[in-house]
Amino acid sequence: MEFKHINYTLQEYWVEIVINRPEVYNALNLEVLKELFAAFEKAGKSSEIRCVVLTGMGAAFCSGQDLKAVGQDLEAIPFREIIRDYYNPLILKMQALQKPIICKLNGLAAGAGCSLALASDVIVASKEAYLPEIFAHIGLVMDAGGNYFLPKRIGYPLAFELATTGRKVYAEEAEKIGLVNKAVEHDQLDAAISQYVEIYVNASAHAVGLIKEMLHESAGMSLQEVLDMEMVYQHKAGKHQDFIEGITAFIEKRKPRFNS
């Protein structure tokens, strides 16, 4: 697919995906959603890519759904079809991707844009960034996985408050309550992202992929089910070449050189 509304920039062992509609604060329309899905699919098929950085062009990360793109007839908006055919497949693609997704939260992440950020595995935010769940202010409810990711990160009481009040949560507060992983000065954002990228491009991609899968699988499981899952996945990890390299490097007191 030729990308027109996003930038897909391949670096050494990682890729940066940038929503590129700064004139509308990187609002999402069907074309952007299709391109994001294709971009994550492309990244998933590459054995060279160890992690993905997701961000927005300009001053915003993503302002959510482009309301002008759904038409003038508000009563005829096909909510079910848009969510079923575009948003849900994208969020599921992100979760199924066996590579870390690092959200470079450079600015506003509102509505579905907030959900997109929360669907990432690690969120590093500029202190100028903020996340408002604005759905209730226009008579809607959270979608794009917001009802799954928000309470998982911060628990029900805070999730309910943010989802119903729509108040702006700036990065420093977001870090304190666990909504984002790290908040940094805006001019330090690239450096902070680079630190995470360096970790993941040098880690065992096989082990990291399994860990991501297990953490998602464990939601709703009983302790016995988790223990059984750990047994299965540890067997997978232990039979992989990365385990041999990791142990050998530890014994030889050197950094491991993972090929996966």
Score class of each variant (00 low, 15 high):
Lys152Phe: 09
Arg153Val: 03
Arg153Tyr: 00
Ile154Leu: 07
Ile154Asn: 06
Tyr156Arg: 13
Pro157His: 09
Leu158Arg: 14
Leu158Met: 12
Ala159Cys: 11
Phe160Met: 15
Phe160Glu: 14
Leu162Trp: 09
Leu162Ala: 07
Leu162Gln: 10
Leu162Asn: 05
Ala163Arg: 12
Ala163Leu: 15
Ala163Pro: 02
Thr164His: 06
Thr164Tyr: 06
Thr164Leu: 06
Thr164Ala: 00
Thr164Met: 06
Thr164Ile: 01
Thr165Lys: 13
Thr165Gly: 04
Gly166Tyr: 08
Gly166Val: 04
Gly166Thr: 01
Gly166Arg: 08
Gly166Asn: 04
Arg167Gly: 01
Lys168Asn: 15
Lys168Glu: 15
Lys168Ala: 14
Val169Leu: 04
Ala171Phe: 05
Ala171Gly: 02
Glu172Lys: 11
Glu172Pro: 00
Glu172Tyr: 10
Glu173Thr: 06
Ala174Gln: 08
Ala174Glu: 07
Glu175Gln: 15
Glu175His: 07
Glu175Asp: 04
Glu175Met: 07
Glu175Leu: 06
Lys176Trp: 09
Lys176Met: 14
Ile177Asn: 09
Ile177Val: 15
Gly178Glu: 12
Gly178Val: 14
Leu179Lys: 00
Val180Arg: 03
Asn181Cys: 07
Asn181Tyr: 12
Lys182Pro: 01
Lys182Phe: 07
Lys182Ile: 12
Ala183Arg: 09
Val184Tyr: 07
Val184Lys: 08
Val184Gln: 02
Glu185Tyr: 08
His186Cys: 08
His186Gln: 12
Asp187Gln: 13
Asp187Trp: 11
Asp187Ser: 09
Gln188Trp: 10
Gln188Pro: 00
Gln188Arg: 14
Leu189His: 04
Leu189Ala: 08
Asp190Asn: 15
Asp190Ile: 10
Ala191Thr: 13
Ala191Arg: 13
Ala192Asp: 01
Ala192Tyr: 02
Ala192Phe: 04
Ala192Pro: 05
